[in-house]
Amino acid sequence: MNKGIFIENVWRSNPIFMQVLGICSALAVTNLLTNTFTMTIGVTVTTGLSSLTVSIFKSLIPRRVRMIIQVLIISFYVIIVDLLLQTFFPDISKSLGPYVGLIITNCIIMGRAEACAISSPPGTALWDGLTAGFGYMAVLMCIAFFRELLGFGTLFGIRIIPAEIFLPWTIMVTPPSAFFLLGIIIWIVKPILKKQGVEV
């Protein structure tokens, strides 16, 4: 598969660094790594498959109604993801609550469909969608890593810091910490990107 697209989507123009796109549906589940992992896998699969579908049917989709058709394609895959989660991981599905459904309004998926899938062959579109999902996953897993480690002293539910010496950071469990961590990650990443000559 094309390595250039991978680097472009995961690092150089990672949707989160560039425009803070698509965090709505996922920032809320970054308090635990397991939830974040499930959620971002869902986003990646949906992005890849809906890009593929849009690309296959691109000659049949009239330009004027393409948005609503894209939304319907995306919702189709989100329903599949949701039903799979409910069947095989009922606990995680319950704790994710409405956020699985909110993958539909994740701007990244529409963004990839509009920017790439509508004008590329199916193989490229699938790979482009998947890599955009990986880039998104990388950033959110990073946030979840710190939130779970400092908020609960665990990683993927396994205790890392012994309970006797662990003082939980209450702030990491509450919503503001996700904003702070995202801000800090952007702060670290932007100068590095700039040094590599990427226009930020």
Partner: peptide, 22 residues
């Protein structure tokens, strides 16, 4: 600070606001 300009500082600001609402 240079790297924080734009989205970075906006995220931090939203974080502070969220703390206020907390």
């Amino acid at each position: 600070p240079e790297g924080l300009k734009g989205t970075g500082i906006t995220m931090i600001t939203i974080g502070v606001m969220a703390m206020g609402f907390l």
